[in-house]
Design a protein around this nucleic acid. Structure first.
Lengths: 244, 244
DNA sequence: CGGCCATTTGACACCTGTCAATGTCTGTGG
DNA sequence: CCACAGACATTGACAGGTGTCAAATGGCCG
């Protein structure tokens, strides 16, 4: 089962929940249907009724909402091992859209598959709920940033969070990580204009804290950046769910 | 079973999921332990490890995060029938605090009770997940407001959302509702200063759209207010979860 | 009556958006 | 190989929304 063990979602769930062989099998079955997607076409569209969600296996995606006046707000950025459009699966219509940032690979999860997994492995249900809770905690932290942090702090906080999340799946080192986002993505994530994102990035770079350039994020002084952003990774709950 | 049927959470869940007698019993057992709380003491504290959540039976609560610089961001406002601190139950430590706005009554839900309910009634598990998804959708809509709506629109949107949510549990009419929030609460919810909240409320009142005064919200011109706020209640998903 | 909390209002500063122009790079087609 | 288009990044000037500071008002309660 090498294929499953190298799977980022299984790693994330399995490392925390001490699942049995049978439960691990259920996790594997949950991700048996793969699919490739590209930035040209949305993976999920706001208002669509298909009861399907995904687990991101490789690549990056964004979940976002578009308003009638055309402005876009990105609600979350997904990296490998993350749920994608999980909320849509139970709501009668998806409340948001999902678009790949780069070519990506996902596993398709239907509501039936999920329900079967839940019925057959209640502890797996709790583990999945835990992962969903963690995602939710990230959205809330994001919301706090929009409400109570200025542009510089928001940017610093986001770049640090992505670093921690990527490190969990082995895609980031202590000094930085590869990042396919454009300044446009950052603007729509942080509730800023592209112009101001550019100003903010320049400022952070000239202050010697972090450099965002050519698809790569480099922490020039991670310690100072964390203090500046008041970054406390507790909400990422790296200790896992209660062992039930 | 009159007591259970008049319970807002049971109403919310039961109306949508067509649960069996046995499942309804499980919902009832989930809420059998009651507790009274007051604004003086937080119901949940950021960082606490108790694996317990609540269902709000009567009153109002807010969930919020406080930063080291003292600023507060309210992430959600709960009205009767809503989950309270549900995310805390699975995370190793709560990522937020919860404070009653007025004297309130809650039902205590432990992780054990939840797991028992899940094991004995898988469809109930899906219904609870649906309710949690709906809560999550509200947080995301809130986030979109902070990122991409100005102060006037945010305020209008919030007052409309509360009206719809309260109407679902019979606590609001088409013309308005009783609301115990202070301008301070509104400010910390909308990411504004109290001073600006006051300016915004005056503006909305003088424009003849909505009046917030003496603990009561009055829709002076609900139609125009909805247009102004670009309020689309789809994210509140009043059609319920898929019938499984 | 005297404190305290919530509300209200004005003056001013500044963070951030908007508008506009330029620069850089990549891929495409002639 | 060059011309060109398009996407992304960068910079400057200016306007405006919102925060901060300060003070006054009003209601509630001990």
């Amino acid at each position: 089962m090498h294929k499953v063990l190298s799977n980022p979602f299984t790693l994330k769930i399995g490392a925390f929940a001490a699942l049995s062989e049978r439960e691990l099998d259920a996790v594997g079955r949950l991700q048996s249907v793969h699919r490739i997607c590209t930035p040209g076409q949305d993976l999920v569209e706001q208002g669509q009724q298909g009861r399907v969600a995904y687990i991101l296996l490789s690549g990056w995606t964004i979940s976002y909402k578009t308003q009638v006046n055309g402005s876009r707000q990105i609600a979350g950025i997904q990296v490998p091992g993350d749920f994608v459009g999980f909320r849509s699966i139970l709501l009668s219509a998806s409340d948001h859209s999902v678009k790949p940032v780069v070519d990506s690979r996902v596993a398709e999860v239907t509501v039936d598959a999920l329900q079967e997994a839940f019925a057959g492995a209640p502890r797996l249900a709790m583990a999945i709920l835990w992962a969903a809770s963690r995602d939710s905690a990230m959205v809330v932290e994001h919301l706090v940033g929009l409400g109570r942090r200025n542009a510089l702090e928001r940017m610093a906080h986001l770049l640090l969070e992505l670093g921690v999340r990527l490190a969990l799946v082995g895609a980031a080192g202590p000094t930085g990580y590869s990042c396919p986002l454009t300044q446009d993505h950052l603007a729509d994530t942080l509730g800023l204009s592209v112009v101001h994102v550019n100003r903010v990035l320049r400022r952070l770079r000239e202050d010697g804290m972090v450099t965002f350039r050519d698809g790569y994020v480099t922490f020039d002084d991670r310690e100072r950046l964390m203090t500046f952003a008041r970054f406390d990774p507790a909400y990422l709950d790296q200790t896992g769910p209660p062992r039930v």
